[in-house]
Amino acid sequence: LFVTEVTNKDYREYLFWLKRVYVSYPNVYKKALPDTLVWRSPLGYNEPYVNNYLRHPAYNDFPVVGVSWVQANDYALWRTDRVNEMILVKAGYINLDLQQVDAENFNTDAYLLGMYEASVRKNKPSLKPGEEEGRRITFEDGLLLPKYRLPTEAEWEFAASGLIGNTYDERVVERKIYPWNGHNIRNSSSKHRGKMMANFVRGRGDYMGVAGNLNDHEP
């Protein structure tokens, strides 16, 4: 699972790699391009986002948008291969190959199955007779990482329900009303006691905090 969002800069690195490596298969690069037209709306003028959001440096650290489920899965597999490749390079088992072209590029599954002939720097010592030169790294060595992936439907639903912090002895006893723990809209900490926790109120009324302490969250 990804811990943080994939940024525009991350995804542009992916696109650059696809375009550089898959010289004979330009459709691989084209299929990975995000749909920048998702910004268009009949009720707003979003053409600057359509033209600039993905590629302008000002949005480097913003999350990439317009990526389909299939494209996101392809990115996860690509990231798995690139991370495992660098792990082997930094550990000194293979050399970094910058001349990879088309299908002749590092793939984790192909490497583990012995179908990818990497530029070997050193081998792992082998205990099998007749393998004096050693062996390549296997998944059982604990060096390579498992595949990056998207959350499953059940994981998405659990996260959206906001159940973390509302369990008792591994039993879900209630659902959250708010993103934070508890059922109050005011802060209970000693430093910020009484202040509104978010930009909304339950029911009618103003957006002020406690008397004498302006805490106006009105949008």
Rank of each mutant, 00 (worst) to 15 (best):
V70K: 15
Y75T: 06
A76M: 11
L77R: 09
L77K: 11
W78I: 04
M86W: 07
L88G: 03
L88R: 00
V89N: 00
K90V: 10
K90T: 09
A91R: 06
A91K: 07
L96W: 08
D97H: 05
V101H: 00
D102P: 04
D102I: 02
A103R: 12
E104I: 07
F106A: 07
N107Y: 08
T108S: 03
T108R: 03
Y111D: 07
Y111L: 02
L113M: 13
L113C: 10
L113K: 15
G114F: 04
M115W: 12
M115I: 12
Y116R: 05
E117Q: 14
R121S: 06
K122P: 00
K124T: 04
P125H: 04
P129H: 09
G130P: 03
E131H: 11
E131A: 10
E132S: 08
E133G: 09
G134V: 05
R136K: 08
R136H: 08
F139I: 13
G142W: 01
G142E: 03
G142T: 02
L143F: 09
L144N: 03
P146A: 04
K147R: 15
Y148R: 13
Y148D: 12
R149H: 14
P151G: 00
E153H: 11
A154Q: 13
A154M: 13
E157F: 13
F158E: 13
A159Y: 14
S161Y: 06
I164L: 15
G165Q: 07
N166Y: 14
T167I: 11
Y168S: 12
Y168C: 11
D169P: 06
E170K: 13
V172S: 01
V173Y: 04
E174M: 11
Y178M: 04
Y178Q: 04
P179D: 06
P179V: 10
P179T: 11
